[in-house]
């Protein structure tokens, strides 16, 4: 096994891992505000890609505007979901809300299939498709976009949750809703905002991924699953852990395919995840469960 191949596996893994990490970030935001695991997160990623293709091909917007419009449309969908499916639930328990998000994801997928059909669509790359060579391995300019935007989003989120009053107010909601309410935080607005923010992250991810992974109505299922696994791996509720968990999962899969067998690459990654959870149930970067009670 030569060095160039190993480097190529690493680059492949980081690219795929960034897609998981971006989805995982979205899970984190809603979890941090509400304690809900939003199983429609993968659909936000799908919508980001499909709306981009739609605005580019059907309404003829230039690519940057199409992406911006796609993100705006998905954020609107996120807000709509919170207002129409999460907020109206009377005396909600967490498990009910989580099941609601599963239902929402099925509805969104079905609607996307009816509106856009079952075909796969390609989005052009942002800055050309000429691969860059680097120590014998190759990387697409789009991969750099993905890694770069993921890092920027991550840094911004970190700063938002730790450094701003608004972000802290959102965090407070997940720790104790009643206490947050009593200290003057508009809990409902925070929950609405968390859905919009995670739709934003998901759709940005979907749009920048679409040139490489392509877009189709059923893209969200697998991404949602892998993104959730990345969250668990990194520790639920920690944005840094979510992104790192995604990258680690991607790299594990890629090395699994390269060194063991491509037939078992998914199994390989999930086996390591299971093993880790036996040793550290709170994930790599998660706080232990006791402090959350």
């Amino acid at each position: 096994m030569d060095f160039a191949s190993i480097l190529q596996y690493l680059i492949s893994g980081l690219t795929v891992g960034a897609t998981y990490g971006l989805t995982a970030l979205g899970f984190t935001i809603i979890y941090n505000t509400t304690g809900i695991i939003n199983f429609a997160q993968g659909e936000f990623v799908m919508l980001g890609g499909m709306f981009s293709v739609f605005f580019l091909n059907v309404t003829g917007l230039p690519l940057p505007l199409a992406v911006a419009a796609a993100v705006a449309a998905t954020v609107a969908v996120g807000a709509f979901i919170e207002r129409c499916t999460i907020r109206p639930v009377k005396h909600p328990t967490l498990i009910q809300l989580i099941i609601v998000t599963i239902g929402v994801s099925i509805v969104i997928r079905g609607l996307a299939m009816l509106v856009w059909g079952k075909d796969t669509f390609a989005l052009p790359a942002f800055t050309g498709e000429t691969p860059l060579r680097f120590l014998g391995a190759t990387i697409l300019p789009q991969n750099l976009w993905i890694l770069g935007i993921t890092l920027v989003l991550l840094a911004a989120l970190k700063r938002f949750f730790a450094g701003t009053m608004f972000g802290r107010a959102m965090l407070a909601c997940s720790h104790n809703k009643k206490a947050a309410y009593l200290s003057g935080i508009d809990v409902q607005r925070m929950v609405l905002f968390s859905f919009m923010l995670s739709a934003f992250i998901g759709s940005v991810g979907g749009a920048i991924l679409a040139p490489i992974t392509m877009a189709s109505y059923d893209r969200g299922i697998l991404l949602g699953l892998k993104g959730f696994a990345a969250c668990i791996l990194g520790g639920l509720g920690n944005p840094f852990g979510a992104a790192a968990g995604g990258l680690i999962l991607g790299v594990l899969e890629s090395f699994g395919a390269g060194f063991v067998s491509s037939a078992y690459k998914d199994a390989f990654a999930f086996l390591i995840l299971l093993g880790l959870l036996f040793v550290r149930p709170s994930g790599l970067f998660g706080k232990s469960a006791a402090t959350r009670a």
């Binding site: 492949s12 490489i212 893209r219 899969e253 890629s254 491509s262 037939a263």
Partner: peptide
């Protein structure tokens, strides 16, 4: 080599094949 029907990146398999 094998890939999943929903996989979005097969550079790992192709790198192995290249070898």
């Amino acid at each position: 080599e094998v890939y999943g029907p929903k996989d979005t990146d097969m550079t790992a398999q192709l790198t192995k094949i290249k070898g």
